[in-house]
Write a protein that binds this DNA or RNA. Structure first.
Lengths: 194, 194
DNA sequence: GTCTATAGAGCGATAGAC
DNA sequence: GTCTATCGCTCTATAGAC
C-alpha cells in the first residue's frame, strides 16, 4: 500500500518503537516474571522484530531493570506527622493498587522480588526500598538507632506487600481494610515511636 | 575393573540414588534458584544420569517442591507465654541460620519466594506460612479477629525474613541482634496484644 | 535400575542486507 | 532504523537398549 518499495516498514519513529517495547515488556514481565518471558514474546506483543528489542535495550536483563521500576510514592506520606504515621503508611500501602500507577508499582515490585536471585536485580530492589522508605524515614527519626529502626519499618512494610502481592494470603486479601490498617499500623507505629 | 560386562554401573540401591539426587537438588536450588538450575546439573552433582532424576521425581518442579520444604521450627516458640512472644519469635528468627537445619529452612524459603511465580510453588509457600506461623498462633489468640491478626504476625515475620535473606539489607545484617530483637519484637508484640 | 540417544522446542544475541 | 537469517547453546522429557 505504501508507495515506497518497502525496503523497511512504514518507519515508525524510534522513540515510539522503544516505548512500545517498554510497555509490552512491563506487561509481560509483570504477569509472568523474568524467566518465563522471552525476547520474542515481548517483540511480538510490541509489534516489532525481536532484534529491535536487543538493539534498543542491549539485553533482556537491562530491559527488565529499565522497565520494572517502582515508585511507591511513599515520600508524601512520610512528610506527615510522626504520630499516626504508622497507620498512614499502611493505609497508603493497601490503597496503592487502586490507582493505575500504584498497581504498576506493585506488580513491578513483585517481579523484582521474584527475579532477585540475579544480583543486579537484588541490588535494584535493595536500592528501591532504601530510597522509598528507609532513607526518607531516617531523616525524620533523630535518634541514634534511627537507621536500624527505619530499615525495620521498611522490612515490616515489605512484609505486608509480599504477603498481599507475592504470597497472596487469602486471609489478608479478604480482611477489612480498616482492621488491617489499625492493627498493622499500630504495630508499625511501635517501631516508629521506639 | 569390574568383572561383569558393565551392562549397567555397579548398581547402587535406588534409595541411595534418590537421596543423592535430593541432596544435590537442595544445594543447587538453594544457591542458584529454580530456573538457573537444570536437571543435568543436578544429575552431575549427584553423580547419576539425568534421566534418573526424571525417573525418580517425575519432573523438575516436583523435585523442587519435594526438596525445598521448610521447617521453621516455630511451633515450640509459639507455645511460650503470650507476653514476650514477640521478642521470642524475633529472637528465634534471627538465630535460625546458626543451626544447620535452620539454615536449610532459610535457604529453602528464599528459593520458594523467588520461584513463587509458579502457582504450585506459591501454594506451597502459602501453606508453609499458614502452618508454621498463622495456624499455631490463631489458637493462642482467643479474640474475634484472631485470624487476621495471626496472618499479620506472619506478614511481619515474613518481612524480616525476606529483608535478611532475599533483599539482604546490609543495615539489618550488620545490626546488633539484641537491638533487632527488642525493636522488631516489641512491634510484633503490639500485634499480638491488640 | 541405569544408561544412551534424541526428540522437540526455545532461548539470547549477532551479522549484515536493505 | 528495521528486518531476515542464523549461530550456538540450553532446556525438559521420553523411548528403548542393556
Amino acid at each position: 500500500m505504501t508507495e515506497r518499495p518497502r525496503a523497511s516498514r512504514p518507519r515508525r519513529p524510534a522513540a515510539q518503537t522503544r516505548q512500545a517495547i517498554h510497555d509490552a515488556a512491563h506487561e509481560l514481565f509483570s504477569r509472568e516474571g523474568f524467566d518465563a518471558v522471552g525476547i520474542r514474546a515481548i517483540a511480538a506483543r510490541a509489534g516489532v522484530d525481536a532484534a529491535l528489542v536487543v538493539r534498543h535495550f542491549g539485553s533482556k536483563e537491562r530491559l527488565f531493570l529499565e522497565t520494572m521500576t517502582v515508585d511507591l510514592a511513599a515520600a508524601r506520606v512520610m512528610e506527615g506527622p510522626l504520630d499516626g504515621l504508622g497507620r498512614a503508611l499502611v493505609e497508603h500501602i493497601v490503597t496503592l493498587p487502586s490507582s493505575r500507577a500504584g498497581e504498576m508499582a506493585v506488580t513491578s515490585l513483585t517481579a523484582l522480588f521474584q527475579a532477585s536471585d540475579r544480583s543486579e536485580v537484588e541490588t535494584a530492589l535493595r536500592e528501591t526500598i532504601r530510597q522509598a522508605i528507609a532513607e526518607p524515614l531516617v531523616r525524620r527519626l533523630g535518634t541514634e538507632d534511627a537507621e536500624v529502626r527505619a530499615h525495620l519499618v521498611a522490612a515490616q512494610i515489605g512484609g505486608l506487600l509480599t504477603s498481599l502481592h507475592v504470597v497472596h494470603d487469602p486471609v489478608l486479601l479478604a480482611a477489612d481494610r480498616g482492621l488491617l490498617t489499625a492493627r498493622y499500623g499500630d504495630a508499625l507505629q511501635a517501631l516508629i515511636d521506639t
